[in-house]
């Protein structure tokens, strides 16, 4: 059975000394993948995996990837919320791999909202 090598973990720890301010609550962008039963059944985990790959590919240490529960719009899943610091959060609906790539390039990296895929901008009110 393989073990994660302690040396690798120590190396990461040493490399991160001094950089920690950034991830300790501060980040430039946060991507939240909605992971309720509805989201999972509609493919949210694949969307999360894709964002993980994109973040790793570009080595973007200032982007946080996280998940949350159902937002009450199950028919629009998979949904994600993108928050770029100092701007309003944007919810994207019916996200697939192609849309996710575009949102990552244009919004997460470029800072421009992909309006075609957005549900609402600046609203955190849930639909009932």
């Amino acid at each position: 059975m393989p073990k994660i090598s302690i040396e690798d973990l120590k190396r990461i720890k040493e490399e991160q000394i001094g950089k920690m301010v950034l991830r300790g609550g501060q980040y430039r962008a946060k991507v939240t993948v909605h992971m309720g039963t509805c989201g999972i059944a509609a493919g949210a985990r694949d969307v999360m995996s894709l964002f993980r790959e994109l973040i790793a590919e570009k080595d973007m240490q200032d982007v946080i990837l996280t998940n949350s529960g159902c937002a009450g719009l199950c028919a629009k899943e998979p949904m994600i919320t993108v928050e770029v610091v100092d701007t309003a959060p944007v919810k994207y609906v019916l996200v697939d791999r192609e849309k996710a790539k575009k949102i990552f390039e244009e919004h997460v990296i470029g800072g421009h909202v992909v309006e075609d895929y957005a549900l609402a901008i600046g609203s955190e009110t849930m639909a009932v």
């Binding site: 393989p2 994660i4 973990l9 120590k10 990461i12 920690m20 300790g24 790793a56």
Partner: peptide, 27 residues
């Protein structure tokens, strides 16, 4: 076990996630 070695580095750090991914896939 991973957390105790990492100290203040969070588990969702991209490099830590990559290590865990590799370990899971191979394991």
């Amino acid at each position: 076990e991973i957390r105790s070695e990492l100290g203040t580095v969070p588990l969702n750090h991209p490099q830590v996630v990559s290590l865990i991914k590799e370990n899971l896939t191979e394991g």
